[in-house]
Amino acid sequence: MADPSTRSRILDATAELYRRQGMPATGLKQISAAAQAPFGSIYHHFPGGKEAISVEVIRREGIRYAELVGAQLADTDPLTGIPQLFEKAGRDLEAQDYSEACSIETIALEVASTNERLRVEAAEVFQSWLTGLAAWFGRLALTEPECRRLAMITLTALEGAFVLCRTLRSIDPIIAAGHGVQAAVRAAATTRRS
């Protein structure tokens, strides 16, 4: 019987490699080496090969990011705290020398037009994040469609900012995005009160 932690090591190593270099640039031998797992254990745990690993990485990373961000949102006022959340995400990216961002975004960009199964998996993760963000915006007593719209603005701004930050090697885009999202939230809250 295989070491029960081997499967987790494979998934953790794959997620890190995907965050750093993307899915197409990541090979099974590289995953095996990074996971310190025998090459044959990849097919033992993931008979579907790289696609099967990728499905699991998308699911796990989706949950991991949701928990990480959810904990930060729990202590943040949506009316005032968004710029600080965005800046923290930017500082974390900067500390990683812009090498690690959202693995779901990376995979989605790479496979949205070529692999329907992985596109659907990534879409489900994004939908779950949008649902969580919309619930967070519900603290402002906005309508459900307005909360959903703000969630979409927030996620779009954040993911787009990650791309620009990595490309420009600067956190300026994510800081600007945070202020832009905050302005949209304040405008929605002001309209609701009127």
Rank of each mutant, 00 (worst) to 15 (best):
L150P: 05
L109V: 08
I107H: 00
G132T: 09
A135I: 12
I58C: 07
A134G: 11
E94T: 03
Y98N: 07
E51W: 05
Y43C: 00
R119T: 01
W129S: 12
F86R: 01
I58S: 02
P4C: 01
T76I: 03
L93K: 03
I104K: 03
D172Q: 11
G180H: 05
S194Q: 10
R9M: 07
H44E: 03
D97M: 04
I58F: 07
L133Y: 07
A13F: 05
L164M: 06
T191K: 14
V57W: 09
A2I: 04
F137K: 02
I53T: 02
L93E: 00
A34D: 08
V163L: 03
D92C: 00
R20I: 05
L11G: 04
L130C: 15
A101T: 01
T106H: 05
E116T: 07
S99G: 13
Q72R: 11
G27P: 10
A74H: 11
L17N: 00
D97E: 08
I175P: 12
G27W: 08
R169C: 02
I107F: 01
D75C: 09
F162C: 00
G81C: 02
C147A: 08
A66Y: 12
T167G: 09
G138E: 07
A184H: 12
G178C: 07
T154V: 12
I174Y: 07
E146F: 03
R20T: 08
A15H: 02
A183Y: 09
S32P: 06
A141V: 15
I104D: 00
I153E: 09
